[in-house]
Design a binder for these strands. Structure first.
Lengths: 125, 125
DNA sequence: ATCACTGTATTAGTTAGATAGTACACTAAT
DNA sequence: ATTAGTGTACTATCTAACTAATACAGTGAT
């Protein structure tokens, strides 16, 4: 059974994120072939066009390369992968800091908040 | 000139967030009156219905109370405000931790990542 | 040439969000 | 009672985003 999608955010974006994370975590290595548009569509239980759009987004950021008739492949350029990793990380941190600042938290409070959360995270499940 | 909205997320949701944060930061105190639906609509340059929807959302979470013919007011129940503050904080931390975990970061790396970011944040502007 | 696999393009349908306009209902001040 | 301000309700319309269905086009093995 396919992993479910959050209905309030576009499926193609969620697919992008999942694939990006797989690449970042190393589950998909450099030069490795992604599932075909149709296969991933079946596996994810979505329309092939939705997968295609996700692949298109990934191609636009150069994380993957497509070869017509052959498939879609993770880039072999390590600089691009490194850049994506860094951007992704900064983007998440940035968002977090912005949100916390808008709530009025100081930088110290953000750090302590995160620390406390990680120590006591059993309570938040 | 009104503060612009991010076109990729619903305006009413952004209004909710802005108002919530104002309350959390204390810019809007307990029992204080919010601008009328029509006034905020003009000020924000959106349709009154959009503001009404935002106020409705806030009322559903009991952060504000509406008095027909009089206006919309911040709740005077401190427990509700405290709960909102806490939930908002947890929700932001939760999201951050989840995203970072999906990228493969350990808890230590999350903390250090945040720390580094805050120390060098001049570079990220 | 054929086949089975790739990605691509086009068109259409559905939906959520935002807007607009109008009418209603309550409250407080006069 | 009147008036001017509140929030509420409803209907209609528009638009952009997303998804879906189907047909097209390149590749490589046979």
């Amino acid at each position: 059974m396919a992993q479910p999608f959050n209905p309030s955010v576009p499926i193609y974006q969620q697919l992008c994120e999942r694939i990006k994370n797989k690449i970042i975590r190393g589950e998909l290595g450099m030069g490795e072939r992604l599932p075909s548009v149709r296969d991933l569509a079946i596996e994810s239980e979505v329309n092939p066009n939705t997968v295609q759009r996700a692949y298109k987004e990934l191609e636009d950021t150069q994380i993957v390369e497509k070869k017509r008739g052959q498939g879609t492949f993770v880039t072999e350029n390590p600089a691009i992968l490194q850049k994506m990793r860094e951007e992704q990380k900064i983007s998440h941190i940035n968002r977090f800091v912005t949100e916390m600042r808008e709530m009025g938290y100081s930088e110290k409070e953000m750090l302590h908040g995160l620390q406390d959360y990680l120590e006591k995270k059993e309570d938040n499940k």
